[in-house]
């Protein structure tokens, strides 16, 4: 009973996260300016991190947690670097 509830809600929430990532991808591809694309990329990173966490719940393994932590770190670094690039035209000066 409880495994059925968990399995169905995990599947539904993974599909919702995939839909969220497709909306973010739409904004990355379609965004009228560069800052819209960077914002979509940030939302895409967050969706990927949450999707990896739900895969961890589904498999019952805590290894996925470390992958999610690495994705969160990469999201911060890449968005900060791209914002710096949009601001100044170079990342390291």
């Amino acid at each position: 009973m409880s495994s059925t509830i968990l399995l169905w809600s995990l599947t539904l929430s993974q599909w919702m996260l995939v839909a969220a990532m497709s909306c973010a991808t739409f904004r990355v591809l379609r965004g009228p300016r560069a800052q819209d694309r960077v914002l979509g990329l940030d939302a895409l990173y967050v969706g990927a991190m949450l999707l990896v966490l739900t895969f961890g719940i589904r498999n019952g393994s805590t290894i996925y947690f470390e992958a999610a932590l690495v994705i969160a770190l990469l999201a911060f670094v890449s968005t900060a670097a791209l914002a710096k690039f949009l601001m100044r035209g170079e990342v390291i000066e």
Binding site: S2, L6, S13, M16, A20, C23
Partner: peptide, 26 residues
């Protein structure tokens, strides 16, 4: 069973709010 229901509710609320946020992004 209580933990399964609670985990399912939290998962659905979390992913639903993420989806709402990206729909706003579009």
């Amino acid at each position: 069973l209580w933990a399964a229901i609670l985990v399912s509710l939290l998962l659905l609320v979390g992913s639903g709010l993420t989806l709402l946020g990206t729909i706003g992004l579009v």
